[in-house]
Amino acid sequence: MVRYLEKVREKLAGLKEVEILQVPRGMNARADALSKMASEETFDFGSVYTEIQLQPSIEEKQVMEIPAGLNWMDPIVQYLLDGILPEDKLAARRLIARAAHYVLHGSKLYKRSYTWPYLQCLVPFESECALREVHEGICGNHGGGRMLAQKIVRH
């Protein structure tokens, strides 16, 4: 409804003068019939003109968030692709040890596991989407934190 309100305000901004009147229900039988029709499952259309809209009248802008900056996977990917290590020797050793648990397949980073198949590593935005999908029931109901975590891993 907020988008429709914005659309109305855009239209009103282009007009010089606007007058809004409240029409009593008795004088607006068609709008009354439409409101009743919307709230009931079965309704005798009678003389009410109806139109089924297959698409919303408000265009939604598709926006894809682009993660800014580095994430936790970038040093591992750089090391696995090009062998680039940090200047600090301790950080370089840690990175080499950590990278041993990961594999690069195409452009995707996966974590190796003994009991599970490779686990795809996600950037924060993707992990939020995966959590939201699982929580909303894409994998069925879950019964607590452990079950939710297992379903996320399987998903």
Rank of each mutant, 00 (worst) to 15 (best):
Ile76Pro: 04
Asp82Ile: 05
Ala91Asp: 12
Pro124Tyr: 07
Lys61Ser: 09
Lys108Val: 05
Glu87Asn: 12
Ile96Thr: 08
Gly46Ser: 13
Leu119Lys: 13
Gly106Cys: 00
Arg93Ile: 02
Val23Leu: 12
Met73Tyr: 07
Pro24Ile: 14
Arg93Leu: 07
Tyr110Arg: 02
Pro75Gln: 00
His105Pro: 00
Glu60Leu: 09
Ser127Thr: 04
Met27Pro: 08
Phe125Glu: 15
Thr50Leu: 12
Leu80Ile: 02
Tyr110Gln: 00
Ser107His: 12
Leu54Met: 07
Ile76Gln: 06
Arg112Glu: 06
Tyr118Met: 06
Glu60Tyr: 03
Tyr118Ile: 12
Ile96Lys: 03
Asn28Ile: 08
Leu104Phe: 08
Val103Cys: 06
Leu85Tyr: 01
Val63Tyr: 06
Gly46Met: 11
Leu81Asn: 08
Ala99Trp: 00
Phe45Gln: 15
Phe125Pro: 09
Met64Thr: 10
Lys108Leu: 05
Gln62Asp: 07
Glu126Pro: 10
His105Gln: 13
Ser57Ala: 09
Val77Leu: 03
Val23Gly: 03
Arg30Trp: 13
Gln120Asp: 14
Ser39Thr: 15
Ala31Val: 13
Gly26Ile: 08
Ala92Ser: 10
Gly26Met: 12
Tyr49Ile: 13
Leu95Phe: 01
Ala99Met: 04
Ser47Phe: 06
Cys121Gly: 08
Glu87Ala: 14
Gln53Cys: 15
Tyr110Gly: 01
Pro24Asp: 13
Ser107Tyr: 05
Ser107Gly: 10
Lys89Thr: 10
Ala33Met: 14
Tyr110Lys: 03
Val123Asp: 07
Ser57Thr: 06
Gln53Pro: 02
Arg25Ser: 14
Thr50Pro: 05
Lys61Arg: 06
Leu34Val: 06
Arg98His: 14
Arg30Asn: 15
Leu34Pro: 10
Ile52Lys: 07
Lys36Gly: 10
Glu41Ala: 04
Phe125Arg: 14
Arg112Leu: 11
